[in-house]
């Protein structure tokens, strides 16, 4: 069974807080790097690695090149986790 969006968002928020600090209190589908303090060129890879580790997925290159917001991440995790189960 694929993860629900609620489960994914809860996991995402944890990863965001671990990566960017406790000041991240909420994220939504529209959240982008401009909205999160510390989500910069240096920390982007840390975020991706943390997400891959937390959700046990490997993001494809095409996704990494086109993702623009948290909504894209959620959809991709949903797709990858449902394909794996």
């Amino acid at each position: 069974m694929a993860m629900s969006e609620e489960e994914i968002y809860a996991g995402l928020l944890n990863v965001f807080r671990e990566t960017f600090g406790p000041s991240v209190t909420e994220i939504s589908a529209q959240t982008t790097s401009r909205d999160v303090k510390g989500w910069d060129s240096f920390n982007h890879l840390n975020l991706i690695l943390a997400l891959e580790s937390r959700f046990q997925v490997a993001f494809p290159n095409e996704f990494l090149k086109t993702m623009t917001n948290v909504g894209d991440i959620v959809q991709q995790i949903k797709t990858l986790t449902s394909a794996a189960r």
């Binding site: 060129s41 240096f42 982007h44 890879l45 090149k65």
Partner: peptide, 14 residues
């Protein structure tokens, strides 16, 4: 020491 993250960003963001 910053090569990995910075070049990753430049590559994925083109």
């Amino acid at each position: 020491t910053v090569y990995g993250p910075q070049s990753f960003w430049q590559r994925v963001k083109d």
